[in-house]
Write a protein that binds this DNA or RNA. Structure first.
Length: 620
RNA sequence: GCCCUCGUAGCUCAGGAGGUAGAGCACACCCUUGGUAAGGGUGAGGUCACGGGUUCAAGUCCCGUCGAGGGCUCCA
């Protein structure tokens, strides 16, 4: 977008440019960068051991943007300590130590790491699990090999690879970032270790690019933009943590999202139901949720002998509705019950996160009752529906994951149904042309599923759409339909959400659009700016006319300069500004400016209406 | 829940190694009526998250509670 030939240079208030972190090499595990990071992890461990004699070391791998190492420290570490450790690391690098690899016998390894309990655990694990140096299972008959890498005084159990010499690392291209707690092996029953994260690159330039990217990404964090744009707030003391309150502007966006989904899915043959907010606890005992999901349910409300729960999910309610509506013929199926239902989940406090992890969330939920032989065609239709809706938002960088059953006993034991359902989903996915990955052991206990996962600006993954096959609940709750043979059969249920939750979807969208919603979603689409007081009445009339055309319009007639009011409108990311003064009043025109700083000049009101309608239609 | 960091006006933040609170923005009023990114002035606004403790004296030090932020397998 060209800058106008006036005003300050820069454009710091425009939507952030889509910058990206430095690229991660193809075949990362065999790249120089991987060696650099892995070696820095060792160098950091050396520095930490020097500073904290007696520290226990756990693991220290390279990660996407750097590396970390986990320690069990004799006393708490502070963020100020990072500077010391970083300085010592630069010294070690400058000392120019070679990294040497050696194969080590199990007994020697046990001796070498006798004071390092985590390493000893790893040694036994490697020996018993039998994996090669890259963690892959060994061919039958081969023995696992233990290796160490040593530089300076520090020798670590490690599969490598490393740089040849510490001088191969640019001392100005890494930075220690943060301290975090991390459970040994990610298991919350195991000890909490101290993890130090660092970022590392080949060159100082790449490091700068990475740090700039993080800074830009933080600017489009939905929590920050939500506050700046006045979309939602939290009142943890008064209302409770994890329960967002939506302002008039935020509610409009919610409403538009839900209306849009409702409209599209109605076109696809969905119906809508409504099932309230609290449910007798006993229903969840029968559905199986009380046993499996009790920890995410709020405690019960007790009324004499009756116990109620805030609804954490809708399936039992929808199934009860199906049942109470009377007998169902196979001719009615598939029967699709959709509901924009606010449910409540008792998420752990440490896991709450803005709008993407909350305790009150509104699912665009749906349960589809159908015959087993209808799974594939219904699933194919759902894939179309999901793609149409995500496409409207320009969301295309999602991943599709087909979750299948794995080993272990948590899965409902009915191999025939599993095989049929998994084949149906796979066939439909193949026919759709979507790229997808298969994840064994990730299925729900009641059936396979397909998830659509999007990433936020900081690279965190969030599940949006989901389609799940359910073999178990319909039977547990006694659902039936009368088949063509006149007998009772149990329907299969598909659980389906497209946005997932309105709140999370909105959070992802705010970041996706950097707060600059497309015209059809913008809380305020047009602001009318009268130049002087004598134009205010005209501005109000103009706004009224635009409102009758269905637009969301405000008038900013404050006693501030025009420049000031333009700046305010652009900060609010309002798509269109209409400036009206003497000339426009006389000619019945408007001077149109966009939030992108592009000045469209003067046009008639009808021409403007045509333009904005085209934007709304196009979804831009 | 656990580890680290943090909690001062609506927002963003100052308050050097204890002595009873500041700025910018936003807000209100006045002046200004301005043609495409900040006109000027005046003013209001804070039990320094909450509860204990140390001290003659605590926003500043200690303990606890409640919130918020980052993180909690990308597996030698």
């Amino acid at each position: 977008m060209p800058n106008p030939p006036f005003g300050r240079a820069g454009g710091c208030l425009m939507a952030p440019k889509p910058i990206s972190p430095p690229p991660i090499p193809d075949d990362y595990p065999h790249s120089d960068l991987y060696r650099i990071r892995h070696s820095l992890a060792h160098i950091m461990a050396q520095a930490v051991l020097e500073k904290f004699p007696g520290a226990k070391i756990a693991i220290g791998p390279p990660i996407d943007y750097g590396f970390y190492y986990d320690f069990d420290l004799p006393r708490p570490i502070k963020e100020e300590d990072l500077a010391d450790i970083e300085a010592r690391m630069r010294e070690i690098i400058a000392e120019g130590h070679a990294f040497t690899r050696r194969v080590i016998a199990p007994d020697e390894a046990r001796e070498l790491f006798r004071d390092q309990p985590y390493k000893l655990e790893l040694i036994e694990d490697i020996l018993s699990r039998g994996t090669d140096e890259y963690g892959n299972p060994l061919p039958p008959g081969e023995q696992p090999v233990l290796t160490t890498y040593k530089h300076a005084t520090f020798e670590d159990l490690c599969r490598g690879p490393h740089v040849d010499n510490t001088r191969d690392i640019n001392p100005k291209a890494f930075k220690l970032m943060s301290i975090a707690g991390a459970y040994w092996r990610g298991d919350e029953t195991k000890p909490m270790l101290t993890r130090i994260y660092g970022t590392a690159w080949r060159t100082p330039k790449e490091l700068r690019q990475y740090l700039q990217w993080r800074e830009e990404a933080q600017k489009r964090d939905h929590r920050r933009l939500g506050k700046e744009l006045g979309l939602f707030v939290f009142a943890p003391d008064e209302i409770g943590p994890g329960i967002p309150l939506f302002t008039p502007k935020g509610e409009i966006v919610r409403h538009l999202l839900e209306s849009y989904v409702r409209e599209v899915q109605t076109r696809y043959g969905f119906t809508h139901v409504w099932t309230g907010h609290i449910v007798r606890e006993d229903l969840y005992a029968r559905s199986g949720h009380l046993q499996n999901y009790a920890d995410v349910m709020f405690p019960p409300m007790v009324d004499g002998d009756d116990r109620y729960r805030l609804k954490p999910m809708n399936c039992p309610s929808h199934m009860t509705l199906y049942k109470k509506m009377g007998r169902h013929s196979y001719r009615e199926l598939p029967l699709r019950f959709s509901e924009f239902a606010t449910v409540y989940r008792y998420e752990k406090k440490g896991e709450l996160h803005g709008l993407t992890r909350v305790r009150s969330l509104t699912q665009d939920d749906c349960h589809i009752f159908l015959m087993p032989e209808q799974i594939q065609s219904e699933f194919a239709m759902l894939l179309d529906l999901v793609q149409e809706i995500l496409g409207r938002f320009g969301l295309t960088n999602y991943q599709v994951r087909l979750s299948l059953r794995g080993e272990g006993g948590k899965y409902v034991d009915d191999p025939e149904k599993w095989n049929a359902a998994e084949a149906a989903l796979r066939n439909a996915l193949n026919a759709s042309g979507l790229d997808y990955t298969e994840a064994y052991g990730e299925a729900a206990f009641y059936g396979p599923k397909a998830d659509f996962v999007a990433r936020d600006t900081l690279g965190r993954e969030w599940q949006l759409s989901t389609i799940q096959v359910d073999f178990i609940q319909p039977a547990r709750l006694g659902l039936t339909y009368i088949g063509p043979d006149g007998e009772e059969h149990t329907p299969v249920v598909l659980h389906r959400a497209i946005m997932g939750s309105t709140e999370r979807f909105l959070g992802v969208l705010i970041e996706h659009y950097a707060g600059a919603f497309p015209v059809w979603l913008a809380p305020v689409q047009v602001v009318v700016l009268p130049i002087a007081d004598r134009h205010a009445a005209h501005a109000q009339r103009l706004a009224g006319r635009l409102r009758t055309e269905g637009l969301r319009v405000e008038v900013d007639a404050d006693s501030e300069t025009l420049n000031y009011r333009i700046r305010r409108a652009e900060k609010a990311k309002i798509p269109y500004m209409l400036v009206v003064g003497d000339r426009e009043m006389e000619n019945g025109t408007v001077a149109v400016r966009m939030r992108s700083r592009k000045n469209l000049g003067t046009m008639t009101v009808d021409a403007f209406l045509a333009r904005i309608r085209a934007d709304i239609e196009a979804g831009t």
